[in-house]
Amino acid sequence: MTGPESEGLTMRRAVCPGSFDPITNGHLDIIARASKLYDVVHVAVMINQSKKGLFEIEERIDLIRQVTADFGNVEVESFHGLLVDFCKQRDIPAIVKGLRAVSDFDYELQMAQMNNGLSGVETLFVPTNPTYSFLSSSLVKEVAAWGGDVAHLLPPVVHEALVERLGKK
């Protein structure tokens, strides 16, 4: 083994969780910024059995891997269950969450406090780039379904996949 772990140093790890259906430029911005702060960033595609996504979990993982490949320190996988369990299983002490608006903060603060109380995992809030402050996967899908141009809101490979998926409907 080489690198910091072989020298007795601990790798700084964090997780960026979400459904990423699909991943947007806003998501990608938060992941990119986290990848500069941590040695390893885990992107956890959380599985919600009660929701049917536009993209299957494996498709989301593949798209995220493609658009984060150049970062070099991003690992992508799915997870079903509590985020704190994902963190415990992988020895991840931090969750990185993007905040678009004050309204996000109320909910995310409660989640952060619950996660910390359950496991000691810390949550770091990263303010979203103002360019993406309105952006959500749901909004992108809705606009695209009505024929709106969302190309500037998604990585090109994700936009292509979205157009293809909506064209099949």
Rank of each mutant, 00 (worst) to 15 (best):
L139M: 08
F71Q: 04
I61C: 09
F134W: 05
A44C: 15
Q113I: 06
L37R: 12
P156D: 07
S133D: 04
D104W: 00
V40L: 12
T131W: 00
E164G: 01
L162C: 07
I47P: 11
T2R: 09
D104V: 02
N25W: 02
V40D: 09
A44T: 04
Q89G: 12
A144G: 09
M1W: 03
V74G: 14
Q110Y: 08
D62T: 07
C16F: 10
A14T: 11
G53V: 03
P127Q: 06
K51D: 10
D21N: 12
L153W: 00
H42A: 13
K168Q: 15
V150I: 05
V40Q: 14
Y38E: 07
I57P: 03
E164D: 13
H27S: 09
G117H: 09
P22W: 00
R12Q: 14
E142Q: 08
M11I: 04
W146M: 15
N48S: 14
M111T: 03
A44D: 11
L54M: 10
I47C: 04
P17S: 01
S136E: 02
A144T: 08
L63P: 14
G98D: 02
W146S: 13
G72H: 03
L162S: 06
L54E: 03
D29G: 04
R65V: 11
V143A: 06
L54N: 08
P17D: 01
M46G: 15
T123Y: 07
V76K: 01
L99A: 06
E122G: 06
Q110F: 03
D29K: 00
T131C: 00
V40W: 06
K168P: 09
S119D: 09
G26F: 03
D91W: 00
R90N: 09
D104P: 05
S35H: 03
V41P: 13
R165S: 05
F71R: 03
G120P: 02
G117D: 11
I57D: 10
A44W: 04
M1D: 11
E142C: 04
H27K: 01
N115W: 00
T123R: 08
V67S: 10
G72T: 03
L28W: 04
G167Q: 00
E122C: 02
V143T: 08
P4N: 12
S137Q: 01
F125K: 04
E7Q: 15
V45Q: 08
R165K: 14
Q49D: 13
L139N: 01
G18S: 12
V67L: 08
G26M: 06
P93F: 05
A34N: 01
